[in-house]
Design a protein around this nucleic acid. Structure first.
Length: 247
DNA sequence: GTTCTAGAAC
DNA sequence: GTTCTAGAAC
């Protein structure tokens, strides 16, 4: 992507004018689009739409938003969070449709964004993608490294006392950028990976293991449901167990 | 983002 | 010799 302001142009447009290949869904205050370079099997961006009193300058990034009015920042982040929640439900349904099981979904911001206009990443926890080519791509989504700021963490800053909020909201790029150069380590098991091709092969193996386990689990669950249905009871046919949030 | 390339790693 | 990374140019 050569155009660093493309997200802003989307945010200013009438969502009805955006092609279906870009726009997934929208609300009055948010847009959900497909990431043009998905780094996982599922990867979306949720953006705040620009509308008064929100200036595009204030929505340029997490830093600019947090530098402005805290209540307004909280409203923006909360609206992104709500859109992300319903998006995750749709992703989970599609996980079952396409792959026969569901796995975790991460929701968060890059500490140092590469494009203008605030965007929340919502992506499946696999990092298996053709587009994942460089160390910085991988490290920017590693869920424990610190560059990827999980939604729950950012929300906690907004509810914290002033001194903590101010400290976290600074988001000085230098220490975060240094994280992108950290050695490659598998986010599942922590083992060190000597290079990107080795990492990608390992991640694929980790995901295949998850898939095998997940499909077997779902098959057992369905069998149990059938058994209960045959016995004429409603047991096991209730709503699915509430999933732990993925932050 | 991609392409190109020097030099490191193997 | 081949594979891989990382920085520069675009």
């Amino acid at each position: 992507m050569s155009n660093l302001t493309i997200l802003r142009t989307y945010a200013l447009k009438d969502p009805a004018t955006l092609p279906a290949s870009i726009l997934f869904s929208n609300t009055d205050s948010t847009l959900t689009i497909y990431d043009a370079f998905p780094k996982s099997l599922f990867h979306f961006l949720v953006l705040p739409r620009a509308s008064a009193p929100l200036e595009t300058n204030e929505l340029a990034s997490l830093i600019t938003l947090l530098r402005g009015d805290r209540t307004r920042a909280k409203q923006v982040i909360s609206s992104l969070n709500e859109a992300a929640k319903s998006l995750r439900k749709e992703i989970e349904a599609e996980m079952v449709n396409r792959y026969g099981f569901k796995w975790n979904i991460w929701t968060g911001f890059h500490a140092v964004p590469s494009m203008q206009h605030l965007h929340l990443h919502v992506l499946s926890a696999d990092l298996c993608s053709e587009k994942m080519k460089h160390k910085k791509h991988y490290n920017s989504f590693h869920p424990k490294l610190g560059f990827f700021l999980h939604m729950d963490e950012v929300l906690s800053w907004l509810d914290a006392e002033d001194s903590y909020f101010t400290t976290m909201a600074k988001l000085d790029p230098a220490p975060y950028e240094a994280l992108l150069k950290e050695n490659l380590a598998c986010f599942h098991c922590g083992s060190a990976m000597k290079n990107i091709p080795a990492l990608k092969a390992h991640l694929q193996m980790e995901w295949d293991t998850l898939a095998t386990r997940g499909k077997a689990q779902l098959a057992r669950k369905r069998k149990l449901e059938e058994k209960h249905a045959a016995a004429g009871t409603d047991e096991g046919r209730g709503p699915p167990k509430k999933q732990k949030s993925d932050q």
